[in-house]
Write a protein that binds this DNA or RNA. Structure first.
Lengths: 144, 144
DNA sequence: TCAATATACTTACTTAGGTAAGTATTATGA
DNA sequence: TCATAATACTTACCTAAGTAAGTATATTGA
């Protein structure tokens, strides 16, 4: 990565994960696991496909992370009507903890963003969204 | 990761790595390996510590990546005056290829950023830099 | 001087994510 | 109907990066 912008994005991504993990340590969780718990809290029971589509990762990533969440008693996978699907939901333990964790993580993120005004945060988001795949060059955008 | 800003940063970080890897595939390289080659091209021979400090990663990460670069004939590690240190440099093969790779990667990155004006790119950089470790809250900043 | 400490790097183990290929189930079309 | 194709998930293998602990060399201070 040599454009300084991408370098900086990569750095901040790693920093955020590191700091979130520091908070999650107390719950024996990691950032990727938390992202799934948060997802389930927000949307209720979901198939694995719905999870990886929402998080924009590949299917195997979710399979692996869910295996750990299941082992550690945060999530459950049940057979769906379509037997290929597995319906994922939070366990009782998770239900009782997720709100507390969310609060802690939100506070951390607000701290990390405390150097930016609300306006700047929105600006930042807007600018990030303009970064696109190189497969989609200027011409392609016309076909939206 | 639940603040949408951090989610977006994480997504773009992964997207950039994925696309850079696509270009590097042709050279049998990966993004982390390229970041070290680029570093050596820019600064000349360096110790491993200088590399991991510049890239802001941990020492073991550089050890591992260099082992692969050495195996595949892109980098060399020589003993320094201080025998604890290993002085890293590019091989002849690397010297002859690095400029070409840099051009390809730069073009890709420009494509990905083509939706942003020069001004917006600088804005984005400035905003990213304002994201800080939560260990450094507002009060701490005073002590700079 | 030389024992204690610090430094540079490595090793072992873990999470996170990607691709490719495999399995089981469902949907489709001749 | 039933062979073929598509879908949902899993498995195996790879890169990337972190922490903790280990090794070898260099530095420091009593």
């Amino acid at each position: 990565m040599e454009n300084l912008l991408f370098h900086e994005i990569h750095q901040k991504s790693r920093l955020a994960i590191k700091e979130v993990n520091e908070v999650l340590k107390e719950y024996n969780l990691y950032s990727a696991q938390w992202s799934i718990l948060f997802c389930l809290k927000q949307f209720g029971p979901m198939t694995q496909k719905e999870i990886w589509q929402y998080l924009n990762v590949e299917a195997p990533t979710v399979t692996r992370t869910l295996s750990k969440l299941e082992e550690s008693g945060w999530a459950e996978r049940n057979e769906g009507a379509d037997k290929r699907q597995r319906i994922v939901c939070l366990t009782a333990k998770a239900e009782s903890k997720v709100a507390e964790i969310e609060e802690r993580v939100t506070m951390l993120e607000e701290d990390m963003l405390s150097g930016l005004s609300q306006d700047e945060q929105q600006q930042l988001m807007g600018l990030l969204k303009k970064i696109q795949s190189a497969a989609r060059t200027e011409k392609d955008v016309e076909n939206d």
